[in-house]
Design a protein around this nucleic acid. Structure first.
Lengths: 307, 307
DNA sequence: CAAAACCATCAATAAAATTGATGAAAACCT
DNA sequence: AGGTTTTCATCAATTTTATTGATGGTTTTG
């Protein structure tokens, strides 16, 4: 009956999101009457309706929209405050939300997370893998404390994000044992078109960087014969071992295979300068420019940089 | 026992201000144990102390200072939100979306809106002019709080809408100074086909009502010589002044012209009964049957009716 | 050293939120 | 159309939570 409470705001927000009392109730593990009561309390307190009830459909009123924005803000702030307080408790508890693109997340980040967990066993680390674009938007909206990508920052999110290099890898040209290049000491740039290639999809960081490298070597990417286009480095790796063709892939992904000699990284030579060519790629750490950073996040960031 | 609530923040802030449990309790009209319990709940939830209890003195801890700043912020925001909601209800601000058809919107509604704005300066009135059909569908879908039309309700939207008469106008037959009727005291119904006519387009409320009237006078509309078909009353008005022909038009539109004698409203007489014929037309107010009506909308409606 | 001030604790009570059952209205489906 | 389902509102009963009044222990004050 009496005004705003955080619980009621929470309930209101759920209803505003689902536009459905029953579903909102389920999402909060409440019963539907509890939700109805909460909304009515709010409505009664201010003598207005927050939702239109049109038949069995529910829509936000103007007042509802106003409250939705405010409620988000208030609850956000409360959540941050709670985190802040928990952290003061000497980092014995807390959460760290990371977002990482695939290569980093699978082959580079686990070591870092392991190290962090060893030092701060009470912290729950929550790591989401997704493509670069999703990591950027997620970091911009606050879904992640920290984002890690190997490509370029999505322009639309750039002004919200602060980036820094925290490492990198090299792309290597690999072939399987049955491939003619397997025995060669090196390959010259003009020979690149002489084999079939396994590619990642055009949106991927790996593919972008590879094409960039080809152009800098004066090789037109479109002249390479493409055997297959695949969406994960794992698939590329297996098919290269099978001898289907050559591929550019992160050295991190094929580390073990190179050791076991089930594939080989063929050096590429610039015939004019007789120098070995490398494809280096930076790993970027992203964080929101303005959003308050938790202590946990700061500590993890420190650990990333001090590798 | 469970986390932050607004009440507890309120209590905490009072204690942080007075640095005194008992006095804080008094200031909030609570007993001291209630305050103790509230603070302990907060402290227990995060496993830390918010106040140093040094002897019988109370001081803020680091955590307490952090929470104090945040709590102020949160409660401030909540207060603002509450005020916003209340204002919305008490009509110190808010929006009113009106949809009106052309004649009403241009010649009748402005006075009403003016009166409303005088009484409720904080309310933003947003008035969309469109044809009857669009006003009906807009009101049915909730784009408008209130719709005003001079014609009939679009049948497909009828079951969603509630209508009521809020006023009306008369269509008058006007001619310019150079027209032969200008000097006549009246015109009989059978003479109507003796001049050229300026018509509104068939969909318009004016045109519909005019044809309806002709039929009721036993005049076949199709025998009138049509000089031009125009889409606004303004254009009709100017061309009538130029002497192009006669036209049926709302008295509201030509009020000034009649005063200035740049045109004349010719009375139409039924020769059998020697009575003056009038074409009256109601203005309808529309609103959605089920959609919640804001207080603002109700007040405006009241103003319309009580003219 | 006694008195007063002050916070913590506790059992009892008051207030609230929540539930499960039920009802009424609208939408959906033949 | 008519029967079925979905969905929100309502209500009495229950559980949970907040508050109270009384009390005890500790510290400061005079």
């Amino acid at each position: 009956m009496s005004g705003i409470t955080l619980d009621r705001l929470q309930i209101f927000l759920a209803v505003a999101e689902y536009l459905h009392f029953t579903r909102a109730a389920e999402s909060l593990y409440l019963t539907q009457p509890a939700v109805s009561a909460a909304i009515q309390s709010l409505e009664d307190s201010y003598g207005l309706r927050l939702f239109h009830r049109i038949g069995r459909r529910v829509e936000l009123t103007d007042a509802g929209r106003l409250l939705q924005a405010e409620a988000r803000d208030i609850l956000d702030r409360v959540a941050l405050t709670e985190r802040g307080l928990r952290e003061l408790n000497e980092m014995q508890r807390g959460e760290l939300h990371l977002g990482s693109s695939l290569t980093i997340g699978n082959y580079w980040l686990p070591r870092k997370i392991g190290e962090f967990k060893r030092r701060h066993p009470g912290i729950v680390v929550n790591c989401t893998l997704a493509n670069t674009e999703e990591i950027c938007t997620g970091t911009a909206t606050g879904a992640f404390d920290l984002g890690l990508i190997e490509g370029e920052v999505l322009p639309s999110t750039q002004r919200h994000l602060e980036k820094a290099i925290v490492g990198g890898d090299r792309l290597v040209i690999v072939v399987g044992p049955s491939h003619p290049w397997f025995e060669l000491p090196f390959v010259e740039t003009h020979q690149l078109a002489e084999t079939a290639w396994l590619m990642r999809e055009p949106g991927s960081g790996t593919q972008q960087r590879f094409e960039e490298a080809l152009l800098s070597w004066q090789v037109d990417p479109s002249i390479l014969p493409i055997a297959l286009v695949l969406t994960t480095g794992e698939m590329v790796k297996v098919l290269v071992e099978e001898g289907v063709g050559a591929a550019a892939i992160s050295e991190l992904i094929v580390e073990k295979e190179l050791q076991l000699r089930t594939m080989r990284a063929v050096p590429i030579i610039d015939p004019e300068q007789s120098s070995v060519l490398e494809i280096r790629r930076p790993f970027l750490k992203l964080r929101h420019r303005q959003r308050f950073q938790t202590k946990i996040s700061r500590v993890f960031e420190q650990l990333l940089v001090s590798y």
